[in-house]
């Protein structure tokens, strides 16, 4: 019971926490930033891709944890 409670709370925070990160990556992709001229501009689509990949990997971790719940 305790394990299930902890799992769902942590899953809610960790997977829910990916939403503001994806939104932030999307915002940085859409809006050009004001970095100094000597700082290279990153590929916004790649940055967004990395963020989504991280979110998916986190989701996979929680699915594996769900399957391992006692």
């Amino acid at each position: 019971m305790m394990a299930w409670f902890i799992f769902w709370v942590t899953a809610f925070v960790a997977i829910g926490g990916q939403i503001p990160l994806i939104i932030a990556a999307w915002r940085l992709y859409r809006q050009p930033h004001l970095a100094p001229a000597n700082v290279p501009r990153s590929d916004g689509r790649a940055d967004l891709g990395w963020t989504i990949l991280t979110a998916l990997a986190t989701l996979a971790l929680f699915v594996a944890a769900y399957l391992a719940l006692p």
């Binding site: 305790m2 394990a3 299930w4 902890i6 799992f7 709370v9 942590t10 899953a11 809610f12 925070v13 960790a14 926490g17 990916q18 503001p20 990160l21 932030a24 940085l28 986190t58 971790l61 929680f62 944890a65 391992a68 719940l69 006692p70």
Partner: peptide, 25 residues
């Protein structure tokens, strides 16, 4: 401002993941 906000979000996710060892026993 963006960095400070993302620090907070990543910290929350980190704390949640740090409790996962208890959930999986």
């Amino acid at each position: 401002a963006e960095t400070r906000w993302q620090i907070l979000v990543y910290s929350a996710i980190m704390m949640a993941v740090s409790l996962l060892p208890v959930a999986i026993g």
